[in-house]
Design a protein around this nucleic acid. Structure first.
Lengths: 369, 369
DNA sequence: CTGAAAGCGCTTACAG
DNA sequence: CTGAAAGCGCTTACAG
């Protein structure tokens, strides 16, 4: 053997000086260094790291001492290459800026980092194109798993990724394919809850400000709204509820503000007796934007008009008019998703559904008109 | 050569059947497959990928055709191991749940993904311990770089990481060490701006609800408050301004609400003529919590008391009482930080400082008491 | 310009 | 139980 430890090409100027010139970043110790120090082979070092029990106690002790002395940490990249899987878990949400996702992401990170994984958080901007690209990139990274809020209803890319062996769990996706585990709340039931609350308060002219029509969440919440209405009519035998459905362009406060300005306010000002007395917004952010516009336009909440949201983001309770809303347990959702992912693929795919709960605060009241 | 392509251990049941049983996940093609198809060596394949110009045009074409036909994508893990750097960029913030950080993170992701990097977003919970652990983990991942909101004022772990060769840029850190590039706004000037605004409106009894006293942001904003006061006294020659400084336990709406309940409201109710007529909150979230409590307690904003925040998160404009605040250009901050990171370490470390700007909305007015 | 070979740092059957 | 060796998929001097 010649001086073999360096790559032939990697001889930087500093390397020419004494092995450990103090200002030069010391090369991190590797298995070989540990093996040398402990007087064993690299295989044994690896064994104490990966299969502790299959190694004689005294060897283990020597190796562990060497590891401690050198401050040795395995190189995760090399482990990933060899094992075919890395300590990364990819999390892909629609929008990094939406508190709903971030609450869930924070919960996910809690369980992932507790188990030694690193969370890779990215946004798909609810685009199926970006989702596909991201999923492919994550697949190539050999991530330990992927937690995805799917934009693509066909679940094509996700299914492929799963078929290639990467555990995937769908988050906030109701119609998950059989083979892929999922965690979500019952959006439909949640929306029904909101309408029932409004109905119970006495509202008969209701505006539903939904999100973009092509999103699954929107479709389901609309279905829930219609469920509640149908049920009500069946119960009362009367066809006395008027529903106005509007769509915002995104699930953001800004979009809510715009929608309020452009369409909600017109509905509210109808003089033919159809003006809504309550607005159900498909998420809290939308509700905030709406309330903001309403206030500027001189409406008082809930006196002039009731507003109810969806999600119960932390800010909902902190609004000047604390928002009545449908609570999604974001924390539990995130935790469950992460745990499901790590719990392994051995069991058949499970689909967890959480129940939304009506949280009454001050933005809803009996109608005065 | 014997049948050499498989790892000796990796012979799963399916592999025993015909090479490409349809239900089995096809092994992704590698350089060797491309080389074989193109009739060249793997070295040449690698060359067309990494040093396009050093390869004869006709060879390049054949290789590119093979790559396209096979849908070949380089394995980033192997590249990372060999090159010593991965396509990952680590971003570490205090709190995934704070819109300020997430706005910036969204901007960072925009530039990073445009350049082909993957963002790894994690939270340090503003703990120096967690920060150190995270930085070490990222270092071991051989990430392309790290964008950090530092909790540790000594910048010890960050400095070490940088010394080991990982590019680091500090984000929202004013007192960055010489050697590490940083991006931040002038917190001190921003806080002064807020106080000047209040003073100009005629307020003479001001409450400053700061964040946790041990955070750098808090210290600087307090300094800015004092600057403005000193300057005012110098200008007017009068010592007629009364400042009350309070600390919230965190930079959250919740903490703001608690602070309002526990201390701010007491100050407000002082009957000895010291009751503040305006409150400067060290961030918008705090301001939201405060406003929420104030409203419940019967105060009207801005008539009874003015409130001004800091950050200008998107929701600030969407509050029922749109919040006057000091705007940080989160987008630009994030973009600049990411670009600084990728622009390379060749230039001397740069420290970019952005100017905060006073954004007047409706939560501040002349005092009425 | 191209091919063959070494090596990144690890893990894992396999033979002793 | 341990050591030596092969190999994960790529990149890069180096010799032709």
């Amino acid at each position: 053997m010649t001086p073999p430890r360096r790559t032939p090409e990697g001889t930087s100027p500093q390397d020419a000086t004494t092995a450990s010139s103090p200002s030069v970043p010391r090369k991190a110790p590797g298995v070989k260094d540990v093996a040398a120090l402990a007087g064993v082979s690299v295989g044994s070092v690896s064994n104490v790291i990966n299969r502790r029990d299959s190694v004689r106690p005294d060897v283990r002790e020597r190796v562990e001492a060497a590891i401690a002395q050198l401050g040795y940490k395995p190189n995760p990249t090399a482990q990933a290459l060899r094992r075919g899987t890395s300590p990364l878990v990819g999390v892909a949400v629609f929008d990094l800026t939406n508190p709903f996702f971030m609450e869930a992401a924070a919960a996910m990170e809690r369980v992932l980092s507790r188990e030694g994984y690193i969370m890779t958080l990215s946004s798909t901007h609810a685009s199926v194109q970006e989702e596909r690209e991201l999923l492919e990139a994550l697949g190539r990274q050999a991530v330990r798993g992927v937690l995805l809020t799917p934009a693509d209803c066909t679940h094509e890319a996700a299914t492929r990724l799963a078929a290639e062996g990467t555990p995937v769990v769908l988050f906030d996706a109701a119609n998950a394919p059989e083979g892929i585990p999922s965690v979500s709340i019952d959006d439909r039931a949640g929306a029904a809850l909101a309408i029932e609350h409004l109905l119970a308060l006495g509202h008969r002219r209701i505006c539903f400000l939904n999100g973009p029509a092509d999103m699954r969440q929107s479709a389901q919440r609309l279905a829930g709204v219609e469920d509640a209405l149908a049920h009500w009519q069946q119960l009362t035998g009367a066809d006395n509820v008027r529903l106005t459905v509007l769509n915002a362009t995104a699930y953001t406060a800004q979009a809510g503000h715009c929608a309020a300005e452009n369409s909600v306010s017109q509905a509210l000002q109808a003089t033919d007796g159809t003006a809504p007395t309550a607005i159900f917004c498909a998420n809290d952010l939308l509700a905030m934007g709406v309330m903001s516009y309403l206030r500027v336009s001189g409406w008082t909440i809930p006196t002039d008009v009731s507003v109810i949201g969806f999600d119960d983001i932390p800010l909902a309770a902190q609004m000047p008019v604390p928002l009545t809303t449908i609570r999604q347990p974001m924390d539990e959702l995130g935790t469950a998703a992460a745990e499901l992912l790590l719990s392994g693929t051995d069991t058949p795919a499970r689909h967890l559904t959480f129940n939304p709960v009506l949280t009454i605060r001050e933005s809803t009241a009996h109608p005065t008109r």
